[in-house]
Amino acid sequence: MSEIREFDCRPNDQTGAESPLAWSFQRGPAPAADAQAGVTLRESAFMGHLILRGGAIVLDEAVREVLGINLPARPNTLAVDAKGERSIQWLSPDEWLILVPGGEEFVLEKALRHALGQAHFSLVNVSGGQTVITLRGPKARETLKKSTPYDVHPSAFPVGKGVTTIFAKTSLILRQPQADCWELIVRRSFADYVYRWLLDAAAEFGVTVERR
């Protein structure tokens, strides 16, 4: 038996799958569409989320080889591939978050394990445990100021930055992969709370929830 147990926990058939915000959407109507909305919110559900842990020197080459992205070595930074679909974010000196389109995560996990061979590292699929909420709009930053003590001013939070920080009474990963696009990576069990908080905090600006 291999020393680490790989397990593809994603079924081929996605029927009946429910994202972390499924209950929030089911419970109550989303706010009515508002053409003047200062904030637009959507869930990027069912993505592949992997936590990669190890030394930067150990991981760097394999990540570049397999993912085609340089491992961000500087604290609080984020690297995104050319298409903007795959990203890897610094979480800690020995911890990174990899986000890929849903369904790619197990292939990627196997490829990375293969590339890393006997090196000491850990790779964990957490796709079911978190979701991505995207905020856009002229008042997105103002909404964030009501929610997180982290400084989101352009001078302190440029595009390409990402941090784990406090949000209301919980925590999340906050990042800005592109201009006017904030991604909140939220733990599944807190997703509804964050969603309700965002609707409440953005109410004075008008908020639209985009559903696929």
Partner: peptide, 12 residues
């Protein structure tokens, strides 16, 4: 010293 920046006490 690991994140190399100041953060609010709530994070600690």
């Amino acid at each position: 010293p690991y994140c190399e920046e100041h953060r609010e006490e709530e994070e600690f």
